[in-house]
Amino acid sequence: MNLVTGMIVNDSGYVFNSMTGESFSINQTARLVLTLLGEGCSKTDIYNRLLSEYDVEASSLEADVDDFFYLLKKYRILVD
Protein backbone atom coordinates (compact mmCIF):
# COMPACT_ATOMS: atom_id res chain seq x y z
CA MET A 1 0.00 0.00 0.00
CA ASN A 2 1.30 3.42 -0.95
CA LEU A 3 0.24 7.02 -0.64
CA VAL A 4 -1.49 8.16 -3.78
CA THR A 5 0.68 10.21 -6.09
CA GLY A 6 -0.27 13.84 -6.50
CA MET A 7 -1.38 14.37 -2.94
CA ILE A 8 -0.82 17.80 -1.43
CA VAL A 9 -0.47 18.31 2.31
CA ASN A 10 0.13 21.80 3.65
CA ASP A 11 1.30 22.98 7.06
CA SER A 12 -2.12 24.01 8.30
CA GLY A 13 -3.50 20.48 7.91
CA TYR A 14 -5.17 20.81 4.52
CA VAL A 15 -4.97 17.76 2.27
CA PHE A 16 -5.87 17.64 -1.39
CA ASN A 17 -6.11 14.37 -3.27
CA SER A 18 -5.61 15.41 -6.88
CA MET A 19 -6.56 11.96 -8.14
CA THR A 20 -10.09 12.25 -6.78
CA GLY A 21 -10.41 16.01 -6.38
CA GLU A 22 -11.40 15.63 -2.73
CA SER A 23 -10.18 17.82 0.12
CA PHE A 24 -9.62 16.86 3.73
CA SER A 25 -8.53 18.38 6.97
CA ILE A 26 -6.19 16.54 9.31
CA ASN A 27 -4.82 17.08 12.78
CA GLN A 28 -1.20 16.92 14.00
CA THR A 29 -1.22 13.19 14.63
CA ALA A 30 -2.65 12.45 11.22
CA ARG A 31 0.05 14.61 9.66
CA LEU A 32 2.72 12.64 11.44
CA VAL A 33 1.20 9.41 10.17
CA LEU A 34 1.14 10.68 6.59
CA THR A 35 4.76 11.78 6.89
CA LEU A 36 5.76 8.36 8.22
CA LEU A 37 3.85 6.65 5.41
CA GLY A 38 5.69 8.87 2.93
CA GLU A 39 8.96 7.71 4.46
CA GLY A 40 7.91 4.11 3.76
CA CYS A 41 6.94 3.04 7.30
CA SER A 42 4.49 0.15 7.66
CA LYS A 43 1.28 0.26 9.68
CA THR A 44 3.00 -1.70 12.49
CA ASP A 45 5.97 0.72 12.51
CA ILE A 46 3.58 3.62 12.78
CA TYR A 47 1.57 1.98 15.56
CA ASN A 48 4.76 1.33 17.58
CA ARG A 49 6.03 4.85 17.03
CA LEU A 50 2.74 6.39 18.22
CA LEU A 51 2.61 4.07 21.21
CA SER A 52 6.04 5.18 22.35
CA GLU A 53 5.43 8.84 21.64
CA TYR A 54 1.92 9.37 23.06
CA ASP A 55 0.38 8.65 26.42
CA VAL A 56 -2.29 6.34 25.09
CA GLU A 57 -3.69 2.90 25.85
CA ALA A 58 -2.62 0.21 23.38
CA SER A 59 -6.19 -1.00 22.69
CA SER A 60 -7.51 2.47 22.06
CA LEU A 61 -4.54 3.31 19.81
CA GLU A 62 -5.03 0.12 17.83
CA ALA A 63 -8.68 1.00 17.19
CA ASP A 64 -7.73 4.53 16.16
CA VAL A 65 -4.97 3.39 13.80
CA ASP A 66 -7.25 0.78 12.23
CA ASP A 67 -9.94 3.42 11.75
CA PHE A 68 -7.47 5.90 10.27
CA PHE A 69 -6.12 3.35 7.78
CA TYR A 70 -9.68 2.37 6.88
CA LEU A 71 -10.43 6.00 6.03
CA LEU A 72 -7.18 6.43 4.07
CA LYS A 73 -8.19 3.49 1.91
CA LYS A 74 -11.81 4.54 1.72
CA TYR A 75 -10.83 8.00 0.44
CA ARG A 76 -8.21 6.49 -1.87
CA ILE A 77 -5.31 8.25 -0.19
CA LEU A 78 -3.69 4.86 0.36
CA VAL A 79 -3.73 2.76 -2.80
CA ASP A 80 -2.40 -0.64 -3.89
Partner: peptide, 8 residues
Protein backbone atom coordinates in the same frame (compact mmCIF):
# COMPACT_ATOMS: atom_id res chain seq x y z
CA UNK B 1 -8.15 12.49 12.61
CA UNK B 2 -8.99 12.77 8.94
CA UNK B 3 -12.06 14.70 7.93
CA UNK B 4 -13.41 15.01 4.44
CA UNK B 5 -14.29 18.58 3.53
CA UNK B 6 -17.70 18.55 1.92
CA UNK B 7 -19.06 21.71 0.36
CA UNK B 8 -22.40 22.20 2.07
Amino acid sequence: MLKRIVPT
